[in-house]
Design a protein around this nucleic acid. Structure first.
Lengths: 208, 208
DNA sequence: CTTTGTATTAACAAAATTGTTAAACAATAG
DNA sequence: CTATTGTTTAACAATTTTGTTAATACAAAG
């Protein structure tokens, strides 16, 4: 078998499934359409993954992991001074989402439509995040006491960063036709938007 | 016929359809489930609305109108000084979305899954928005020249406002379990979040 | 009180979609 | 070479979902 030369059928199906699920969601996706896009008969899809549900779970697992990686990117480089660290964190998070622009909508839709399914996963993630945030909150509090920045709740700051970074991609198709020339050149807009998000957050924590 | 005393069957179906479509989307919605929720046979649904598609369009039309109203709310009260105006606009927009928390996800999903359908609608909206923004941009430019605020692109500012306000509700189910006690009390969190969004935007335009 | 149009139901039909199976085929280990 | 194992296909089955229809009830109008 040539697993490396040509992509295996399994790989082809997974790639096609990812595309289909990310754009159309579970309900909108069709196993026949995935099989067709992968260039295999739809019996093959069932041979490798048994059910649509199981194929979907493979994609969900990977995408949830990617999403959590993206959230850790906001943490930034701990060796840098706090303002530089936040600046870098925002940029890294923005770039991460830029590389996975379909990810947030997929994850949000999935959480909304079957919350019970992710309760366990979520409880664990919540605890991890809690401890990590505590460290960063401490660093922020110390910087605030030194008068370098404003005192602020790190969670609120994270929500603001995620809001601005994620919304950019989430609502791109919605906003683009409404914004005239501003968003006409995607690359140029994204560059400007990244800078704007950083500027907005930095001003939020700037001592005044 | 008692059109007002008791809700008409048509009204019941529309209400059930709105709930179903907003939470599950077009693909996830089931006409049988809508009929059941409305307490009518599913033949009734087809009698009144012919097809799922036509029923969906009724909901979409209304929701797109609501969404565009919400966007106009950001404009704020033109009789107020610019900073107060923006402050009020953010608050009004936030409250609007708070009253329609399922709206943004629904609209975004719809735009992403069938963009061609809204091209015409969008061209028109884009032109209207363009002219309205021009006025506000002028007012901002004048205030900036007077040294009251920073010079800023109104469209960028609007995107930031929409980002922070909308993301709050869009990602609520996703964030809530990750944020420990912060989001435990929904009302309290929304109040804090509204204030945070206003603070963030005002700092963005504050002359420094 | 009969006609006419609307409302309602149950049963049915059609289509789409997921999933199965049996048989053919290919690769490979012994 | 052949037995075994995994791969592939075509055809089929089951289910779900949307949509239709024919029969019936009901209300209003003449």
């Amino acid at each position: 078998m040539d697993n490396n030369q040509v992509q295996s059928k399994e790989q082809l199906i997974l790639a096609a499934a990812e595309q289909e699920f990310l754009t159309k969601g579970y309900d909108g996706a069709r196993t026949t359409s995935i099989a067709q896009a992968a260039g295999v008969t739809h019996a093959m899809l069932h041979y490798y993954f048994r059910t649509k549900e199981q194929l979907f779970e493979r994609i969900v697992d990977e995408k949830f992991a990617t999403m959590s990686h993206s959230m850790f990117a906001i943490m930034g480089d701990p060796s840098l001074p706090i303002v530089e660290r936040i600046k870098g964190g925002i940029a890294a998070h923005f770039d991460f989402i830029a590389d996975n622009p379909l990810l947030p909508r997929f994850v949000i839709n999935e959480i909304v439509s079957r919350p019970e399914r992710y309760e366990v996963l979520y409880k664990r993630a919540g605890i991890i995040i809690e401890t990590i945030y505590r460290d960063l909150q401490l660093e922020i509090d110390r910087a605030a006491e030194r008068g370098e920045i404003e005192k602020i709740d790190i969670k609120m700051l994270f929500i603001s960063i995620m809001s601005m970074n994620i919304f950019t991609f989430l609502a791109y198709p919605f906003m683009e036709p409404l914004m005239g020339n501003l968003m006409a050149d995607r690359e140029q807009f994204l560059t400007a938007r990244k800078a704007e998000n950083i500027e907005t957050i930095l001003r939020r924590i700037k001592k005044q």
